[in-house]
Design a protein around this nucleic acid. Structure first.
Lengths: 208, 208, 208, 208
DNA sequence: GATGAATGAGGGTTCATTCAT
DNA sequence: AATGAATGAACCCTCATTCAT
């Protein structure tokens, strides 16, 4: 992206793959260009033909991972039934959050927010902020249809997102567990949606 | 505890203070023992009299920070009114999460979970797990009193915790904002408790 | 001369021009083949088609510069009046010594005499030695005509050369000054010739 | 000089000796800190305990060499007879110029004047300029005593200095010769002084 | 017990050179 | 003949760790 197209795009991906492996295992500071080169199967010099510095390689790697991850709303339309839509979006979000690439990028961006503020900003904009925004739109739509009673759609969206991030998520972030069974995900999402709807769902008319 | 009585506990704290400053600013890999020694006002050799290695110093520092942070339930009793208790606990938790020491420890543990799995474990046990456990007890108490309708108190506690961690929290973790106004905290906590109670609060008897 | 006829002499000069610019700015070790290639507007590979190595390119560049510089005696004939000839030669020599190309070559050859002894030898032969020899011939001619009283013409030539290299010259070599006004040059040369003639000029017959 | 006195002055000299050997052989850019460490018999790290960087080590080395070299006028008094004084000073200067340390420092300062302008400046001030000034004073003294006819004593001093730097000097600078016989030095100095006095010496009264 | 000079492996980066295209 | 991507050794420098004082 930031480099001439004369260099092989294939090799660039190869390098980024190597970088992903090493950054994931060692973090930014802990990763060495030597190891990345070895992991990617290229020489150390080649790294510098593709990326000007370790920092730029890291940046490119984070940006690529960000793009790979953000697909949460791809096929949600206004016609999707309320509860089904909430569950589908929630499930996707949670799956992404506990997936290996999702965790990787979360850890790295949080860890290096001080050194790479622009990355933190880009991550927030492309990730949480975008999800919130899109979700708020959808919530607003359903509120207008009378199926939700929401005043601040954006905040409601934040709450829904937050409800997905129970300790399941935390445990993955801390690498206390290696994988997450589907059943767990379903349960978390279902309960989150239930709680959400109990607060924001249209109240049944109370019979007089 | 692991050291001979000949070493001064005071100096140990002095070193940990220096370590805290440098680890906070530079991260684990970025921190140098020289800088820590300078910051702590001792010689490099002394560092190694108190801690066997950089890794052990880091471990000790993280453990101390963990202990400093966990005070959430200190004065909550069974008599505390339900909503007030929820708010008080939530507020403390959120304040801790967005505080500089809280963020520091969160970032470091998440970042180095791969290299220091035992730290991640200890952090989880001393932090999220303990909070959840304590909160679940309290919820269970109120459920037994009929003020809450909760089947799985632990999961409910997780949800309440999760609701505190809206994007306010994320923004702090990403260093997108430098501080958090009290009003913001109040609002997040209040809304969290409201949503929580809408789902778990005792339903008013429906008139027949 | 050492290359196949398939290579373009034009491009060779182009490369040497690039090399001159970079060697002048960075010195031998400081210059990079990449920068030379860029400066010359050719690829790195092409450099190696024309010159076997960095050392050979440097050698070729120094030799070319040597040739460019040596023009001191071009139009001096036996008929040129003594003092005028001395001044003209002196002035040219001094101008050459303080000129940018002259300084460049002097600095580089002196700096790299250890690594490139054959270059130092070639430089001496093409420069100082040739000037001395040519000047000695001319001095000898005037001695035979009775206008100079010289026993060792070669040594006298060395002295005349030496007299041109006052601190003006040194200051330029040390880059303490950026340019030399004509008046300064005239003065140095004039005084040098005057001193020279006071020692070697034919003594007026002492009246009996 | 620029460092705390806590480090061993002995080892500092040891390092500077190693640096001298390597800088002399390879030049500034060509010298590697590894080789200097090996030559000095210390580890690479130790180099950096004593000198902050390669540039600073080079600077320290040049300054030390400068101080070692400047002793030309140490015992010249106003009572020293004219011709003897001129010869003595000239001889010392020439010996210094063709000595290994003298050449070393000349080569390095000329070669790196672009990169280390402050060194070039310091060298000029401590070397050529100081010699000129001191020599001019002495010449002025003899002029006042009527033994010399000099208008611009400083310029005359420059000329005398210049006359020492015949091709003997140049050959050493180019490493074309390894050593200089005393006889050569004597001859150059004697002829220089003779020429100098023929121009600036008090003229014998011409008998009427 | 405290010090900090010494170590040397390893860090990121550059660069002369090669070679497939 | 010309290119420039690839290489890997070597660059300057940092740092966790040791140990004589």
């Amino acid at each position: 992206m930031s480099h001439a197209e004369t260099l092989s795009a294939e090799k660039e991906q190869q390098i980024l793959d190597g970088a992903a492996a090493v950054f994931a295992a060692e973090g930014y500071e802990g990763a060495s260009m030597s190891r990345i080169a070895a992991e990617a199967g290229v020489s150390k010099g080649t790294l510098y033909n593709y990326f000007e510095s370790k920092a730029e390689l890291f940046t490119a790697f984070v940006r690529r991972e960000c793009h790979r991850i953000l697909f949460v709303f791809d096929d949600l339309t206004d016609d999707t039934p309320l509860e089904e839509g909430l569950c589908r979006v929630g499930e996707r979000m949670l799956r992404m959050l506990v997936s290996e690439p999702g965790l990787l990028i979360y850890r790295m961006v949080v860890a290096e927010a001080g050194k790479f503020p622009e990355l933190a900003h880009a991550f927030y904009g492309a990730g949480p902020a975008r999800v919130k925004e899109r979700m708020a739109e959808w919530i607003r739509h359903h509120a207008e249809c009378g199926r939700l009673q929401v005043e601040d759609a954006e905040f409601a969206a934040e709450q829904l997102s937050a409800l997905m991030q129970t300790q399941l998520c935390m445990k993955r972030r801390l690498r206390l567990i290696e994988s997450v069974p589907d059943a767990e995900i379903h349960r978390v999402v279902e309960c989150a949606v239930k709680l959400f709807l109990s607060g924001y769902g249209a109240k049944p008319a109370v019979p007089t």
